[in-house]
Amino acid sequence: MKLNKKIIIGATALALGSLSVVAINTNNSNYVSASAASTKETTVKLRLNHNSYVYDKNGKRLKKYKGKKALIKKSQKLTIKGKIEPIQKAKRYYFYGKLENGNRPAYWLTYKKINNDYYYSIGNKGYIKCVNVKTIDGYSLMSTEATVTIKPRIEKVAHTWNKLGEQTTKTYKSGQKLIIDDTNILPNQNTYSYRVKGTDYWVSAQDLKSYPRPSHMVTSRILRYN
């Protein structure tokens, strides 16, 4: 992945836009395209960001799915049946619908938590991990937290900053895995930084092996872009 180029482009877009925390207007049912927000099952189109194994309802990897190897390639597009519902508080995996009147309502495609992982049902008793899904009906899937791997770009360790953009003494070694739970562009910086869960330590996206999945934006805050 050409991470540095994407960091600069993404950071510039975020810096130029207005970002604010808002409540979701649940009366706005203008969620678009192939699916309408509903408590009933509807047709949903998924696009993957990674090859995905197929699992059963207990989280056990299947050997066969529909008579073939239980592996769905990244290039494949899936059409499934699922429930899409509006949310007022971010779910572990969620997405934003169509922009209407300055508001982009948030939704979630219902998933199942098995042990410590989250799965979407794809029918025929098969499940795939939510983290392997890139888009739902063309809308980018987001998460409230994600796991990343440290890979310092310049030095042997990755330095950290606090929310004020001040460098701290905390560092992380190459290969360390961290759970992150927020995304921001800190003061006096022009690239994304991610907050290490449970701390005020922020690591630069440039010191990560790759962007978090399913999306480079990780946050539990409900956002609106004007």
Rank of each mutant, 00 (worst) to 15 (best):
N226W: 02
Y93N: 00
E145I: 02
N124K: 08
K173R: 10
H50W: 04
Y192I: 01
K69C: 15
L178T: 00
T135H: 05
A106V: 01
L109E: 03
T26E: 15
E85C: 05
G97R: 03
D56L: 09
A15P: 02
F95D: 04
E145R: 09
A37Y: 01
I9A: 11
R195L: 02
R221W: 09
T110I: 01
K69Y: 13
L78T: 08
L186P: 10
E41M: 12
R213S: 12
I7C: 12
H159Q: 14
Q88E: 13
N162P: 09
K113C: 04
N132M: 01
K66T: 02
V196Y: 01
K112T: 06
V44H: 12
K69P: 08
D117K: 12
K177C: 05
I154P: 07
Y192D: 09
T160A: 07
P212E: 02
E166R: 13
Y107E: 00
I122N: 07
Y225I: 08
K177H: 11
V148S: 03
K89G: 14
G17H: 07
S35R: 06
I154Q: 13
I80Y: 04
R221T: 00
A13Y: 03
V131K: 04
N132G: 10
N49W: 02
Y93E: 01
A13E: 13
V22A: 12
Y53C: 14
D137F: 09
N101Q: 15
R153P: 01
R104M: 14
Y119G: 05
S215G: 09
S215E: 05
W161V: 04
V196H: 02
V218H: 06
